[in-house]
């Protein structure tokens, strides 16, 4: 079974928005979006359960997203494809889903996995756009995936309880962050990742037209950044061994104990 996993490089540590460009500041060391580790883990499990196949990583991002991809390769993925192109900077969902779909078309994977959300932008809908472009069935928020007879059976939580949904392959599935506990790369995995194929492709390699990428291909814009509404009287302390007493006094003062 061939499994493609769409992953994102996010800024390490605290994210900030650059007030000049109004884009997320992508300086500093790049990390693998934590939610995507769940998707990589699930891909590895699916591959193991079928006994054969390949796990391919796909990402749209700057050249240094290769670092994040290497982290997922170290977990056990087989190879990585990075769509990296200056013309893709500032792509919104419409543009990103288009480029990703083009790259996924080349792969013809049986299963395409996404993580629950992007830790930086909190985007949590990309898979549905990609699935529509690929004309494939999509299931999101998967808390459990089983594979049998050319079908995936997905259990997922909604506002009303748990659904069980069946989808024939090929299919797009977005996994929840509770689906598994992502493995830590072993030393062998980390060393081995260095020799795994990491391909970089440009938009023209994928035949993505210039007016469908980057700001030109995007349909949304950012006007301004504002401070959030202030929260009154909020207090934060470090536990020096006495925090329980501080909480207790606070509750007593508010007449809650």
């Amino acid at each position: 079974m061939k499994i493609a996993v769409c992953v994102k490089q996010v800024p390490e540590g605290d994210s900030r928005i650059d007030p000049g460009t109004k884009r997320l500041d992508r300086g500093g060391e790049g990390a693998l979006n934590a939610f995507d580790a769940n998707a990589v883990e699930e891909a590895l499990r699916l591959k193991d359960s079928t006994g054969e196949g390949e796990v391919v990583l796909l990402s749209l991002g700057p050249a240094k997203a290769q670092d994040a991809l290497r982290k997922a390769l170290a977990m056990g993925a087989d190879r990585a494809v990075l769509i990296s192109d200056d013309a893709a900077a500032g792509s919104d969902l419409v543009a990103t889903s288009y480029a990703l779909a083009k790259a996924l078309e080349r792969e013809s994977a049986d299963v395409i996995l996404f993580g629950q959300q992007a830790g930086d932008s909190d985007g949590a809908v990309l898979w549905a756009a990609v699935a529509d472009r690929l004309r494939l069935p999509v299931v999101s928020q998967a808390a459990e995936i089983t594979h049998a007879g050319g079908k995936l059976t997905v259990k997922r939580q909604t506002e009303f309880g748990y659904d069980v949904i069946e989808a024939p392959l090929p299919a797009v599935v977005a996994v929840s962050d509770a689906i598994n506990e992502p493995r830590y790369p072993s030393l062998k995995g980390i060393m081995g990742a260095k020799s795994k194929p990491q391909e970089t492709v440009t938009l023209s390699d994928l035949r993505v037209e210039a007016d469908r990428a980057g700001e030109q291909g995007s349909r949304t814009e950012v006007y301004a950044l504002n401070d959030p509404p202030a929260r009154a009287d909020s207090k934060k302390i470090d536990d020096d061994g006495n925090a329980a007493q501080v909480i207790f006094d606070f509750l007593a003062e508010k007449r809650l104990v």
């Binding site: 949304t220 006007y223 950044l225 504002n226 959030p228």
Partner: peptide, 8 residues
Amino acid sequence: VYVDVGWT
């Protein structure tokens, strides 16, 4: 941060 966003 609260971002003002729009559509083109």
